[in-house]
Design a protein around this nucleic acid. Structure first.
Lengths: 248, 248
DNA sequence: CTGTATCCTTGACCGAGATCAAGAAAGAAC
DNA sequence: GTTCTTTCTTGATCTCGGTCAAGGATACAG
């Protein structure tokens, strides 16, 4: 698997699709100008590894388009996904030289990159960047903790329902639809990837998907295309507190 | 359980035991003076609830002494601990009005508190605080992700060994001992709390503790006082990559 | 069309950990 | 001391999800 990088057309920050959500969201015009000079784009194909745990990382980046995953592995190969990088999410840690996780492109991915050292220097001088990064990191921490509850205490059916609810909600937000009604979306993950995320085997994922389908909670047009006839019904299956604040 | 608060003697920041590790670690003398004016101390007894999920929080705080836990609960009462607050750790989120987790004092706890609004104002003007908070939050995120791997993919024995290794290492660091040799320490958690942390029942925790004892990995003087004759042996039981970077 | 690869489903069986239950150990209150 | 409570241990049994195995669906190459 060669590290093919298709260089995409240079994009102006002003027209950037993640301009208002990424680490640069709070930047003023002059700050943006400086970032504009520093940035460069890199692309990765679906399935490609962006970084291995322990790799030296000389850049940090924002996801512009596509989805990447963060995962960790035990000695004997058991792996657990520990994070999902969506457009506008930030990859890398200022001050850290090496990757702490395996980062893999799930779909084709375009990233807006900055060499680490210059970025760190700029961050020290630009509170707007550090402020936004703090906010994003706190959100990720909340999401990680929500995931800990799922991994530690939910059963297989609840785990699947939770994942579907999250993907459905994100998709609905993207399409600006109203809540409560019928939803449909494509799952960007294989059964195995779902299992790695949920701490399950792919067989259990498959069985629970079939069970939710049999019980009418979801309808499958194809293996990957899902319709949720009643979102509230799906939410009931997650086991969450019904009033709960939703963090994803 | 009344909310008893024993007001401890006012402590000067200069003599504060967490001065060099807390959110104020990077502050200059003048910044510290301003924090000194704003701060107030609160104490909680072991077992007391510091905040319930959804409670309005009008302060943020650093743990000065003691241990507190963050936990989340499903509808039917299943609970999962999602974080451990140790001395110097920060509680609360700037910009958030309500508690996102149940916070409970495991031991007697003393906290150094700041009213939220003035603290937010100060943070906006004092990059040193925001920088340090970002650093601490990134560390917590790493710890949370390490925990996700444990919850999703480790078996009961590995989970227990991992928890013991973490507590042992922290204790050794505190006592400035050299690694590799024999260690002993007190477990600050009940079997039930360990279970809540590890996503296990208290019975399973008890059984695995007995098993590790039977196999000579640990020696129990009392239920809570643990001796680790060979730390490397304990590490082997965690299932982690042996070279692994350790985040706690 | 056929062969091959990837992804998914389903069945049979098994075992790790949960659940239910009883009682031991250790304090704390009196 | 005795009683009461909390914490912990251990046993018996059950069940959910893992493991092993076979085969179906879909896509793509030739």
């Amino acid at each position: 698997m060669p590290t093919t990088q298709i260089e995409p057309l240079q994009l102006e920050c002003a027209n950037c699709p993640i301009r208002h959500r990424a680490v640069c969201a709070r930047c003023e015009a002059d700050e943006l100008d400086r970032l504009e000079e520093m940035k460069f784009y890199r692309s990765f194909e679906a399935g490609q590894t962006i970084a291995w745990t322990g790799d030296r990382m000389d850049f940090v980046a924002s996801i512009v388009t596509g989805i990447a995953t963060l995962s960790q592995t035990l000695e004997d190969g058991r792996t657990q996904m520990v994070g999902l990088l969506l457009p506008s999410d930030f990859m890398g840690r200022p001050g850290r030289e090496t990757a702490a996780y395996d980062v893999t492109a799930t779909t084709d991915v375009v990233m807006c990159c900055f060499r680490r050292k210059p970025f760190e220097t700029m961050m020290a001088k630009t509170p707007h960047i550090a402020q936004r990064l703090l906010e994003m990191t706190l959100d990720e921490l909340d999401a990680a903790r929500e995931w800990m509850l799922l991994l530690g205490r939910k059963n297989a059916r609840e785990k699947i329902a939770s994942l579907l609810a999250i993907v459905a909600r994100r998709d609905a937000a993207l399409k600006m639809m109203q809540a409560g009604g019928s939803l449909e979306f494509d799952l960007p993950l294989t059964r195995e990837a779902m299992g790695d995320y949920l701490g399950l085997t792919l067989e259990t994922v498959s069985r629970q998907m079939s069970a939710l389908k049999r019980d009418g909670v979801i309808v499958l047009a194809t293996k990957r295309h899902i319709t949720v006839p009643d979102f509230d019904r799906l939410l009931e299956e997650t086991g969450d507190d019904t009033d709960g604040g939703l963090l994803f």
